[in-house]
């Protein structure tokens, strides 16, 4: 048994050496955030990316790439037909059995996890390694860390406020403890009202929210077009009936564009400063 395990680990090691030794030429990314991250690494050489998931729209050039379908249910046949030599996926976004299927078909899939800030750093490292750009990844991580540290220092002085991060409506979906959004709120020195939740994305009742009484409610808009923005503003209106909540009384319900915050790449810093500004209206 032990021999088998050792043998297995050894082959895994050799295989990974073999793969990481040669630079991948045909890359497919299975979630928008990884498309963005890989594009960051490849800079102007985006021709290596042959397929991206639906909604991968940054950098804009990726919109022209072949789409393999939505991340939660991508099209395996499409992925195979693109003949990738390296595929990037996330553990929390993509369906586990689909990833398994790709591996069974003999494709090389690198899976990263992005449920906390430290995992985000790690994911950048993993992606950089897989692309054979180790130096660049450590630079990127250092840059990200420095930026985040700056923001953390900037925000030390506030009195701690309670924030609700809303991602869905009907049912109400909010960010819980095991998300990197929770870590981000930590950086900004505000408290996520659902930081004690065991689930990553809990679905609380309005009653519960009233009891938690957040000082600020932030609604993430997932889409850029005007129609969906109108939709998110309707969510905002829904809150106005609950005058018991501090955030409602003080007019602290904000709709912000989620892309830069929900996709953990270098653009996270942009997102953070935007969120900081939004929250900053409270802390004066």
């Amino acid at each position: 048994m032990i021999q088998k395990i050792i043998y297995f680990i050894l082959t895994l090691f050799l295989v990974s050496l073999h793969i990481f030794a040669q630079e991948p030429k045909r890359i497919v990314t299975l979630v928008p955030s990884l498309g963005e991250l890989v594009a960051d690494f490849l800079r102007d050489d985006l021709s290596k990316i042959v397929g991206v998931s639906e909604y991968t729209d940054y950098p804009p050039k990726l919109k022209l790439k072949e789409s393999i379908g939505p991340y939660y249910k991508f099209n395996i046949e499409k992925v195979v037909s693109l003949k990738p030599d390296l595929i990037f996926a996330t553990q929390d976004g993509n369906a586990k059995d689909q990833i398994l299927h790709l591996r069974e078909l003999g494709l090389q899939v690198v899976v990263v996890n992005t449920t906390s800030l430290s995992e985000v750093y790690q994911s950048i490292d993993t992606v950089g390694n897989a692309l054979g750009k180790k130096e660049m990844s450590s630079q990127m991580i250092a840059q990200l860390k420095r930026g985040i540290e700056n923001i953390r220092v900037r925000n030390k002085k506030h009195a701690v406020k309670k924030v609700l991060l809303q991602i869905g409506y009907q049912p109400l979906v909010v960010a819980g403890k095991r998300t990197f959004l929770n870590d981000i709120l930590d950086v900004l020195n505000v408290q996520n009202v659902y930081s004690e939740s065991r689930m990553s994305y809990p679905r609380p009742s309005f009653e519960d929210v009233i009891q938690k009484n957040p000082d600020v409610i932030i609604i993430f808009a997932m889409d850029k077009n005007l129609k969906s923005f109108y939709h998110f503003y309707r969510w905002k209106r829904e809150w106005l009936q609950f005058k018991q909540i501090n955030a409602v009384r003080q007019n602290q319900i904000h709709v912000i564009l989620g892309d830069t915050l929900l996709r953990p790449t270098l653009r996270l810093l942009e997102g953070l400063s935007m969120l900081e500004k939004t929250l900053g209206t409270v802390f004066q």
């Binding site: 939660y72 976004g93 369906a95 586990k96 689930m199 994305y201």
Partner: peptide, 13 residues
Amino acid sequence: TIGDAQGMQNALF
């Protein structure tokens, strides 16, 4: 209601 969102999306399909 108690399961994680991604797995349940899978289940729904």
